[in-house]
Write a protein that binds this DNA or RNA. Structure first.
Lengths: 155, 155
DNA sequence: TACTGATAGTCAGTATGCTTGTCAATTGAG
DNA sequence: CTCAATTGACAAGCATACTGACTATCAGTA
């Protein structure tokens, strides 16, 4: 019986668990209430005006259904606007509000700090190395995920 | 604004997402229905006879409450037994059943394959390197997690 | 133009993963 | 020994993450 602690799957879960906790703690310390998923969604919406939910989901490699809920909460907090697209009435166009933009700016340094904190056990060289390998592993197995990353079509 | 795709937190989530999907697919292909968390719990129970839930949670670095639900499902599937401890009537002693042990054995090669599959983009040397760095990063930030790993007391 | 297939979003359902709060049992300080 | 603090488990609640099914809409075609 192989040891659980040596399995990549277990290490992946542990590292992600730490990443989420660190993110949450930093953002909370900044006096805000935003999860890492909500942050990723908000930041992506701010870079793509009028993006629809399905495209957003693809860009941050999330399930359509999950994003529905995330967008609900962001809308409820007044951080984004959601309206039916005029070109495609099935789709919802998303846009960041001024409140959302302001929050993104204020929160940014804390997000930065969280990213460094979760790598505090590694030297800069090691951190760089690990991120490179993670990116490589992810790219090679992107299609194995249930919600693979989908590059945005040239708009 | 820093790119989301370069953030360790984002990479951590993506890799974990892939790991879970690969695990699920392999186990399903084996004709079983067991999540990665359930597997970790079951394997750990099989190695620690009569372990209580809190210790189990600590060993696989999970929240106590989460493990309660996981144990519920394992019990419902007939894979483990749960009974009140005679030494500490607050605690529940867990033990694997014959069905559970058999399932663990049958499932093992598929779990192995899943672990390799999620690293398919890396050379053996790179994989080794990434796992080493992950372990190092996790060890250094274990206490930042909400559910840190707790070594079992010498029993 | 009517039909077909694909797509956007939602709903219902399952399983984590965490928080807070509660209860009962245990333990340790005095 | 007694009382307070701690601990194991559970309940309720929120936020991911996914599956499968369903509706509305759209786009291409016969």
């Amino acid at each position: 019986m192989k040891d659980i602690y040596d399995m990549p799957g277990h290490l992946a879960r542990r590292f992600q668990q730490i990443a989420v906790a660190v993110f949450q703690a930093e953002v909370e310390q900044a006096g805000y209430d935003l999860t890492s998923v909500q942050y990723a969604a908000l930041a992506t919406v701010s870079l793509h005006k009028g993006i629809d939910q399905a495209t957003l989901a693809g860009l941050i490699a999330h399930d359509r259904t999950t994003i529905g809920g995330v967008v609900d909460r962001l809308e409820q907090k007044g951080l984004i606007l959601r309206r039916t697209s005029s070109r495609d009435r099935r789709a919802r166009e998303l846009d960041i509000t001024d409140t959302g933009r302001m929050m993104l700016e204020k929160i940014e340094p804390y997000v930065e700090r969280a990213q460094q904190l979760m790598l505090r056990g590694l030297s800069p060289g090691e951190a760089e190395q690990m991120l490179r390998l993670l990116r490589k592993a992810i790219a090679a197995s992107n299609d194995l995920s249930r919600a693979p990353l989908k590059e945005a079509a040239a708009s």
